[in-house]
């Protein structure tokens, strides 16, 4: 299967600030790709390079088989974009903006547009300046989702939406996937990516630090094990890949590296296990492993 997005070692600096530092990213056609990272990690910069709004200093990027900078206009007919901070024209209504974007992109499906307005509970007759952040985001989302395109570039598309609208959004993305569309979904809301994404790339300080399916990534991290046994568990502590073992009245808790899980479970079987809880790592844990203390200090509020 060909890649809808294929980025090799892209670099981009703004003055002395290095925004992208050798970024690689492959997004398969027809997949939903989660693009995960804290603020100012380079997510928006990457998307803007894909849109031909910024020019990469070095590296190679291909999108839908074209060059994002040189072939910007023909490529834009085949994609739709939702920015993280949607700004609308103060004097145009939301409905006018939606129609305008659809027409500028080259086609519009009025039935689908009206249906989406209803599903997202948007009043399209209000002027742009009277919309809240969430409503402006709905305008951009409806304009993007109503268009018949191959690729959706969504830059933190639900930052201002309430949980109800978030659910509608997830539904729409699933429908887009069923229709064979490719979705690049940037976010720092982990739950959203976890639910929707087939593949995930984690970006940190302008580089992809991890990429793969959620299963692949879990393989790389530790699983939490919680067991109740009758027999002493001291032997477990000596096994490779076992960390932070605590034992109390036959109740044992520890974490185990993904690739050693099988061996540890075999061992547990010999210990007369009475109860066992094994929890897969959450994306919070994945991120914590990559950002460590920096995340705990700067990004805790955003991840929460």
């Amino acid at each position: 299967m060909t890649a809808a997005i294929d980025i090799h070692h892209i670099e981009k600096s703004f003055g002395r600030v290095r925004a992208l530092d050798g970024l690689d990213l492959q997004v398969e056609t027809g997949s939903v790709h989660g693009f995960l990272g804290p603020n100012s990690a380079g997510k928006s910069t990457t998307i803007r390079i894909l849109l031909g709004l910024l020019r990469a200093d070095a590296g190679r990027a291909r999108m839908l088989g074209g060059d994002p900078w040189a072939d910007a206009v023909p490529l834009h007919r085949r994609l739709a974009y939702v920015p993280g901070d949607v700004e609308l024209w103060p004097s145009l209504t939301g409905g006018e903006a939606i129609d305008l974007f659809a027409r500028l992109r080259g086609g519009t499906d009025p039935v689908r547009r009206d249906e989406l307005c209803q599903r997202f509970d948007l009043d399209p007759s209000r002027k742009g300046r009277t919309y809240s952040k969430g409503n402006r985001q709905k305008v951009a989302l409806i304009a993007a989702l109503a268009s018949d395109v191959e690729l959706l570039l969504l830059d933190e598309p639900t930052a201002g939406l309430d949980p109800l609208m978030e659910a509608v959004f997830q539904e729409c993305i699933r429908e887009a996937k069923d229709a064979g569309r490719t979705v690049l979904l940037s976010s720092h809301i982990l739950a959203q990516v976890e639910v929707l994404a087939d593949q995930i790339s984690i970006i940190r300080q302008g580089r992809i630090v991890e990429t793969g399916s959620l299963a692949d990534l879990r393989h790389l991290t530790r699983t939490s094990v919680d067991a109740i046994t009758d027999r002493p568990v001291d032997a477990l502590a000596g096994l490779p890949g076992v960390h932070g073992l605590r034992s109390e009245d036959g109740h044992v808790r520890f974490e185990v590296d993904g690739d050693h899980l099988a061996a540890v479970v075999r061992h547990l079987g010999d210990l007369d296990v009475q109860g066992l809880t094994v929890r897969p790592p959450t994306l919070e844990q994945l991120l914590l492993r990559h950002y460590g203390n920096q995340l705990a200090h700067n990004g805790a509020a955003e991840v929460a």
Partner: peptide, 15 residues
């Protein structure tokens, strides 16, 4: 600067 050009240029409108 107020971010309204970006979504327009993301459609099939060239610079």
């Amino acid at each position: 600067t107020e971010g309204r050009t970006e979504p327009v240029l993301a459609t099939s409108v060239s610079r």
